[in-house]
């Protein structure tokens, strides 16, 4: 969806959110070098990394002229600095790879904020952007169901991932509400002034 969107004008996609996602996948999938889980797992990791960088490239390089930088003004250091600090303090293991993994989990939970901030600034979103956001939010929300399943049937429980996943899903809730009440009824998402 993002690729398609980038090809038309006035994408209103937050380049900052996409940069953060590229950083998220880079720091999380460093375990590509140390552990192998499955062919599916490895290929999805590579696809995520490749797509996130391709999206950043499209926004900042190839389609620089249509990038709406004036509305993409969220200060990402306000996310990266606290998230970086927290990943040093609260992690499973004080090792470089594990701290970077924790950083990526925390950062992912808030990486969408520049995008939501951009929508609140412009007061509207293209319908395709809202579909993208909906499925991005749904992706982590479905993990909540998966974690309950895994807790009961496999005894698996990762507190860091679960708390961050809940935070991430909560951030999308407001948007989910608008998506269901407006976009699914065929209206364009526009916020009252």
């Amino acid at each position: 969806l993002l690729f398609l969107r980038s090809w038309s004008t006035r994408a209103r996609i937050s380049g900052k959110s996409q940069l953060l996602f590229a950083l998220v996948f880079t720091t999380r999938y460093l375990d590509l070098f140390t552990s192998f889980i499955s062919l599916y797992n490895t290929s999805m990791k590579l696809i995520y990394i490749a797509c996130s960088y391709a999206t950043v490239y499209l926004i900042y390089m190839k389609f620089k002229a249509t990038y709406d930088g004036n509305h993409d003004t969220f200060r990402v250091e306000f996310l990266i600095v606290p998230v970086g600090g927290l990943s040093f303090l609260v992690n499973h293991d004080f090792s470089p790879l594990e701290i970077l993994w924790t950083f990526s989990i925390y950062l992912e939970s808030v990486a969408i904020l520049p995008q939501l901030f951009m929508i609140s600034k412009t007061g509207e979103a293209e319908t395709i952007t809202t579909h993208y956001l909906f499925f991005l939010g749904l992706y982590r929300a479905l993990y909540l169901v998966n974690w309950i399943w895994r807790y009961y049937f496999e005894g698996f429980f990762d507190l860091i991932a679960v708390v961050a996943g809940v935070v991430q899903t909560v951030l999308y809730c407001d948007f989910f509400y608008l998506y269901v009440t407006k976009v699914l009824k065929g209206k364009k998402l526009s916020l009252p002034a």
Binding site: L30, S35, I37, K45, S95, P96, L97, E98
Partner: peptide
């Protein structure tokens, strides 16, 4: 390069 825990989720 220190090894991290094994995380199987994406």
């Amino acid at each position: 390069f220190q090894k991290g825990l094994k995380h199987d989720e994406l």
